[in-house]
Design a protein around this nucleic acid. Structure first.
Lengths: 158, 158
DNA sequence: ATGCATTACTTGCAAATGTAAGTATTGTAA
DNA sequence: TTACAATACTTACATTTGCAAGTAATGCAT
């Protein structure tokens, strides 16, 4: 066992309170997810900070930076720098929006598309590993509940 | 409506994929929680980065930095600097551990305890506001499921 | 009791982040 | 048409972060 156990007197109550807090759990899981994602992405040489934008563009490119950021709830400055990094990595390119000289449309390069194509499997693997303890039904349930909390309609409109 | 809508062609599928991802939802909620907490804490003049440790100490002080960090899954350097900040704010004090000259025990000051006493209400308010769309049963469900994912036993052993 | 691993904590430094202020372009209203 | 607001994006600067390396004290095996 470990020395310091004598400090543990009367902790259970505090522990329960904290671990029963939605906020605490979400923060804990967010950090865990992030660490696992970082690991998984290392295998394909993609930085974790880039991956969300890259995935987004894989689903639809030719959008401007503002639109890209909005879909991920990222602030603009972040998207701006993120795209700098992706351009530098050779994953995307900025093209002038034919309708506005103040905005760019972002397009994946072939290299970027190739990298992005590897992302869905990684994302799924990480999500599955974090949710490994849950049954399929429970996974569906927790996602539905989180969507409700995040005020995201679940799309199933029938 | 807003210009740029012409860009939205064929987005629904991508949107659904992203919003159905556990990881995406957790990150989204984590940022939301953080922003709301920051707001709520502003009212009582407590920095968000400090609040978790302060809350922890309110539940039990007189523990060392390592133990404190472990309970929150925070890295040591973070706890170290966090305590610096709390000491500076006059919320806690470091006392030599009578059993070891290489560790400190952290105690709340009266001022710190007073601040900390205001935290539970704030935490509850933020959690409630994020989970406002859910019924009581759903709240309990989502917390239980997240605990299971985080491999935290829920304590109810019977 | 000596040497070496471990524990507890801190810190230097490079990189990442957030804020606020900047540029340039476009919309809009008198 | 001109002036003022709004949009799209960038960047300077101060702070925060994270890693790795540091200090100091302790445990532990020989």
């Amino acid at each position: 066992m470990f020395r310091g156990d004598y400090l543990m007197t009367q902790v259970p109550k505090a522990k329960a309170a904290r671990e029963g807090s939605f906020g605490f759990l979400v923060q804990l899981l967010a950090r865990d997810l992030d660490a696992r994602m970082k690991e998984a992405l290392k295998e394909i040489g993609v930085e974790v900070k880039i991956f969300a934008n890259l995935m987004m563009l894989y689903e639809e490119d030719g959008i401007n930076q503002r639109a890209l950021g909005e879909r991920l709830n990222f602030p603009e400055y972040f998207t701006s720098r993120n795209i700098d990094a992706m351009v530098e990595a050779g994953y995307v390119e900025r093209r002038q929006d034919p309708n506005s000289r103040r905005s760019y449309l972002i397009f994946l390069t072939d290299k970027g598309r190739e990298k992005a194509s590897q992302l869905p499997a990684k994302i799924k693997a990480v999500n599955d590993s974090v949710l490994a303890e849950l049954t399929e039904q429970e996974k569906a349930d927790v996602i539905k509940l989180l969507q409700k909390a995040a005020k995201i309609s679940d799309g199933t409109s029938s």
